[in-house]
Design a protein around this nucleic acid. Structure first.
Lengths: 186, 186
DNA sequence: CTCCATATATCTATCGGTAGATAGGCAATA
DNA sequence: TATTGCCTATCTACCGATAGATATATGGAG
């Protein structure tokens, strides 16, 4: 994914704006102003809004999967991997004071250009894939994949409500609840 | 809240469109077409988009609280009330094949006109209030209010992911997980 | 080393379309 | 006749997108 400086600055600005206000509330002119160029120059780097959206989600997913790979490398048990996963979500919330990019786009998904929607679904699937694999060997009864999806959705919901009510406690309590359920039963 | 027929049809159309595509993706012209009038007539009933948004959320909350009151009347135990609460969320998802109105607006909250944002926060607070009261007397250790917020956010997240991945199983599994946590410990 | 060709990245200017919003008129009704 | 509800027509602002000019950098060919 070799990309030049301006294109990345545009994606940075887009990520911030989309995570706060949603896909349809972001314009090429907004982004142009954010990076101090004209809107025609934004179109030079991303011909259409759809292609910008796809690039945005793909970069976001790449970064997230890279962070997950680091967790994978360090965490030795399913419980620790789960903890690392939750910590990443929590960090994403506190660092940007916004919900997950794909949490926002997931809410708007039926109104998105199909290629963008597909990229969002892929992000979620990759999350669930990782978690499912991470939880292998934990003493959990039932479908691991289903449980992984529940965890992802729980974290996404917690981000949304934390931002809406301006109360990070909700995220913390959600994470605590998730981790508690996966403590090896004594 | 006495309102005439057209105004309610406009709100019906707005609710559907906002729940599917988000606040910023809905226009007066869209709504006008939905109810077979001209956009100026939509402005006759709701002068501004902001006032339409506020009315939309308030009506939604009224309906939801009315449904909760019925649950309250029928359910005798905290466990049954919780079950009724989750069932209402599940019903909201399956009936409209869309996320909660306030789940959508909650995601977009930082880009909403402040009065609309305030109405959304009030919806969530009312949900948490009801749940907190409903859970009184359950053998749960820790802050009931915090736990109520976690449940609301979990259900909201489950709706979002269910719609995104087109898999209602996620909602079902989330509800099952919530109810299981609140089974009186044997 | 210089000159020219090409590529890159930006600009100005503009397109057709749509956004929210308003003014003023017309018909039914109470 | 005053009110209600809808209409036509229009406004200004902004949307995504494109055309075409310009400046700068790179990299051979002579």
């Amino acid at each position: 994914m070799e990309r030049n400086a301006t294109a990345d600055l545009i994606l940075d600005a887009a990520e911030k704006r989309v995570r706060h206000n949603g896909y349809n509330a972001v314009s090429f002119r907004d982004l142009a102003e954010d990076v101090s160029v004209k809107s025609a120059s934004v179109h030079y780097h991303f011909q259409t809004k759809e292609s910008l959206g796809v690039a945005l989600v793909k970069r976001y997913e790449e970064r997230f999967l890279a962070a997950l790979a680091k967790v994978e490398a360090k965490a030795s048990s399913p419980a620790l991997k789960l903890e690392g996963f939750c910590a990443l979500y929590r960090q994403s919330l506190t660092e940007s004071d916004a919900i997950c990019l794909c949490g926002m786009l997931g809410a708007e998904i039926s109104g998105l250009p199909e290629p963008v929607a597909a990229a969002v679904r892929e992000f979620f699937q990759a999350n669930i894939d990782w978690l499912e694999k991470a939880l292998e060997g934990s003493d959990f009864k039932g479908s691991l994949r289903e449980e992984a999806a529940v965890i992802v959705s729980t974290l996404q919901g917690a981000m949304m409500l934390s931002i809406s009510l301006r109360d990070t406690q909700i995220m913390d309590a959600s994470v605590a609840g998730i981790l508690q359920s996966y403590k090896p039963r004594p």
